[in-house]
Design a protein around this nucleic acid. Structure first.
Length: 594
DNA sequence: GTGCGTGGCGCG
DNA sequence: AAAGCGCGCCACGCAC
C-alpha cells in the first residue's frame, strides 16, 4: 500500500515512495523485524487507542515507521512483536505527542519509556510556531504533503458507516491501519523538517526543558489526584436543592421560566424599567454579565448570579468528578505541557487551573491520599517581579527589596502617605500595576478598579511618573518586534531561554505580557525539573501556572516543605528575588478558607 | 440529535 | 494615542 493508492498521485511528494504495511502474519512479522534492524536517524512510533484515557480505553495498534516505510501492528494479536521492538531498538524514538503514547504503552505494555532518546514533534512544532495548528495531520499537510489528511477523512466516513468507535474498529479495516501506519512516517518527515529550524534558533535548552516537562507531566497524569466523592455528592445535593427552590421562586415572583437564559432575564428587567446599555463583545446582544448584574438594583439580579455560580460548581465540577475518576478512584486530568502560545500548561478533564478561590467549595473536594497531606507551594507575585526584572525599573526593584507588602510600598509612594494593607488605594495600585503589565488603558483600569475614568487616567499618570519602567519596556519590546517583522518576517519577543513568542498582527502590545507569562512558565517548568532532581517529583500532582500541588506522606511533609521552597526559591538570577511559599493542608480548599 | 458560535466566568 | 494576556467548560440557541 502506498499513499498514491490512498489519495492519488502526488507528483514528486516526499511521501511518493512510502510503503505501508500491516503485520498480520508470521512472515510479515519477520519482515518487520528485518526492517527494524536497518539503521536510520530516528524511528517513528505512534499508537491508536479507543480513547484518551489509558486506564479506561484499549490500546489497538502500535505503529512504527521511518522516512519510507510504515508498519501497523495490532496490539491484541501481535503485541509480542511490538514489545520486542520497543525493548530492543536502541536508537532515537520520535513520537507526535510523546506524553500521550508513552502513557498508553506504559499502562498496556508495561514499557518504561527511555526518555533520554525520545523526541516529540508536537513539542518541536510548538516551539517553532506556537500560533499555528500542531496536530500531526495539519502539520504534515502544511510541511510535507497536502494529501496527509486524505486517509483521515476516509477513516471517519468508514467508521461512521459501520458504527465503530476507536475501541471497536477492526484493526484490519484498511482505512484504519493504513492511516495509522502513515502516522509514524509523517512524524519522521516532520522531525527532519523541524529539527534544523530548532537548531538554527538555538532551541536546545528550551527543547530539553520541554521534554523534561512532558515526562514529569505524564507521570502526574498517571498518578492522578485524590477526590472526596462523598463530600462532592453531599455538597452538590445541597446546592441543587437550593437552586430548585430559587428557580421556583423566580418563576412565581418574576414570571421568568429560566433565570440562566439571558434573553428571558433581560426581557423581564426591561419590563421593570431597568435600563441596560453594556453590549457583549460581539455587540450583538445586551450584556448581562457579573459586572452588569452586580450594579443592578433589582432583586432578580442577585438570584441570577447565585444560580449561575451554584450550577457551575455542580455541573462543571462536583457532579462531573465521579464520572471522571479512574478505576483507582482518583482523578486523572489531562495536562498539556504546551497548552498556550506562551508555553503555559493547560489542564483539561477537568480544568483544574480554573477552580474558584474566593469560594473554597470545589477545592475542598481535593484531598491527599490516605496517610498524606497536601503541600501547596506558590510563587510570590512572580509576574510583577519579572516585570521589575525585565524593565530594570529601580523603583519597582527597590520596592521588592523592602520587608513590607509590595503593593503597599508602591501605593505609599504614589499617594505620598503610608498606605496599609486594607486600604482601597492598595487595590487600585495593584489593579493598575497588573493592568499596565498586560497593556490595559485607563478605561479598562477604571473598570477593574471600579474608579472613574478621570481618576484612572490621573492615577496611571502618577504610576508612570514614579515607575516609568513598564511603559519603557512596552516601547522597547514593541519596537524590537517591529524591527524583527521587517528583518525576519515575524514580530516576536524572545524569552531568556531563547523561546520566540510571536505576536498577532496589530497586537504587538501583547508581547510584554507574552514575555512575562512565557518566562514565568519557563520558571515553573525549570522548577519541576529541579524538584525531580531534588527527589520529590514522585509527590507532584498538579502544576497551576505559579503553584505546585504535592501529595506527601505525613512523615515527610516537614522535609518536603523545606526542599520545595529551597529548590524553587531563586535569589540570585534576577534583579529581584523570586520566592515561593509552601503550606501544608488537609485539602486544597483549606488554604483558602478563612 | 449533533455541531457550533456566543456569552459568561473561573483561574493565573 | 491606544491596546489586558493566556486558557477550558458549560448553558443557550440556532443551523444542519
Amino acid at each position: 500500500m502506498t499513499i498514491s493508492d490512498l489519495a492519488g498521485s502526488g507528483g514528486d511528494s516526499p511521501l511518493r515512495d512510502v510503503q505501508l504495511e500491516l503485520v498480520d502474519s508470521v512472515d510479515k512479522a519477520m519482515e518487520f523485524k528485518r526492517w527494524l534492524s536497518q539503521s536510520r536517524r530516528a524511528l517513528g512510533v505512534d499508537t491508536e487507542s479507543g480513547g484518551l484515557r489509558p486506564d479506561l480505553h484499549r490500546l489497538r495498534l502500535v505503529q512504527f515507521g521511518d522516512m519510507t516505510r510504515g508498519w501497523a501492528i495490532p496490539w491484541d494479536r501481535w503485541g509480542g512483536v511490538t514489545m520486542e521492538a520497543l525493548n530492543q531498538y536502541e536508537g532515537p524514538l520520535v513520537f507526535h505527542n510523546a506524553g500521550f503514547d508513552c502513557r498508553f504503552l506504559q499502562a498496556h505494555a508495561g514499557w518504561s519509556p527511555p526518555w533520554s532518546r525520545i523526541h516529540d514533534t508536537m513539542t518541536m512544532a510548538h516551539l517553532v510556531d506556537p500560533s499555528r495548528p500542531k496536530g500531526l495531520k495539519p502539520l504534515s499537510a502544511r510541511l510535507i504533503d497536502p494529501r496527509a489528511t486524505a486517509g483521515e477523512t476516509l477513516l471517519h466516513t468508514g467508521m461512521g458507516q459501520h458504527g465503530w468507535t476507536g475501541d471497536t474498529v477492526p484493526t484490519d479495516f484498511p482505512p484504519y491501519w493504513v492511516d495509522g501506519a502513515l502516522d509514524p512516517v509523517l512524524t519522521c518527515h516532520v522531525f527532519e523538517k523541524l529539527g534544523p529550524t530548532l537548531k538554527a534558533r538555538h532551541y536546545e535548552t528550551a527543547y530539553d526543558l520541554e521534554m523534561t516537562t512532558v515526562r514529569i507531566c505524564a507521570d502526574m497524569m498517571t498518578r492522578g489526584i485524590n477526590i472526596d466523592l462523598g463530600y462532592c455528592d453531599q455538597k452538590a445535593e445541597e446546592l441543587r436543592g437550593w437552586v430548585v427552590k430559587a428557580r421556583e421562586m423566580i418563576k412565581r415572583e418574576y414570571g421568568v421560566d429560566n433565570p440562566t437564559s439571558n434573553r428571558q432575564v433581560i426581557a423581564k428587567l426591561q419590563r421593570d424599567g431597568v435600563e441596560l446599555t453594556k453590549r457583549t463583545a460581539s455587540g450583538a446582544d445586551l450584556a448581562l454579565d457579573k459586572e452588569v448584574l452586580n450594579a443592578l438594583d433589582h432583586p432578580l439580579a442577585e438570584y441570577v448570579l447565585a444560580i449561575r455560580k451554584a450550577e457551575k460548581i455542580c455541573s462543571t465540577y462536583l457532579e462531573n468528578f465521579s464520572e471522571m475518576i479512574g478505576p483507582d478512584g482518583r482523578l486523572h486530568p489531562s495536562i498539556n505541557p504546551l497548552g498556550a502560545r506562551t508555553g503555559r500548561m493547560s489542564i483539561t478533564g477537568p480544568a483544574l487551573q480554573t477552580l474558584q478561590r474566593d469560594d473554597p467549595t470545589v477545592r475542598t473536594a481535593f484531598i491527599p491520599s490516605a496517610g498524606n497531606r497536601l503541600v501547596l507551594c506558590d510563587a510570590d507575585q512572580i509576574e510583577m517581579r519579572l516585570a521589575a526584572h525585565f524593565s530594570h525599573d529601580q523603583g519597582l526593584i527597590d520596592a521588592f527589596h523592602q520587608d513590607a507588602d509590595f503593593f503597599c510600598v508602591l501605593a505609599s509612594q504614589i499617594f505620598g502617605e503610608d498606605v496599609k494593607k486594607g486600604d482601597r488605594r492598595r487595590q487600585i495600585t495593584k489593579n493598575t500595576g497588573y493592568g499596565k503589565l498586560y497593556g490595559a488603558g485607563a478605561p479598562t483600569i477604571a473598570r477593574t478598579a471600579k474608579i472613574t475614568l478621570e481618576a484612572a487616567a490621573h492615577f496611571v499618570q502618577a504610576f508612570d511618573d514614579r515607575f516609568p519602567g513598564i511603559t519603557q519596556l512596552m516601547t522597547k519590546v514593541v519596537n524590537e518586534a517591529e524591527q524583527r517583522r521587517r528583518d525576519e518576517g515575524r514580530a516576536y519577543v524572545r524569552t531568556p531561554l531563547g523561546r520566540e513568542v510571536p505576536a498577532d498582527d496589530e497586537r504587538e502590545y501583547a508581547l510584554v505580557n507574552y514575555l512575562i507569562q512565557s518566562h514565568a512558565a519557563e520558571i515553573l517548568k525549570r522548577g519541576l525539573a529541579d524538584l525531580e532532581a531534588a527527589d520529590v517529583a514522585r509527590y507532584l500532582v498538579l502544576p497551576v501556572h505559579d503553584e505546585v500541588v504535592l501529595d506527601v506522606p505525613e512523615a515527610e511533609v516537614a522535609d518536603v516543605v523545606n526542599v520545595v521552597e529551597s529548590t524553587l526559591n531563586d535569589l540570585t538570577t534576577y534583579e529581584v528575588p523570586l520566592t515561593w511559599s509552601a503550606e501544608t493542608h488537609p485539602s486544597w480548599g483549606a488554604k483558602y478558607r478563612k
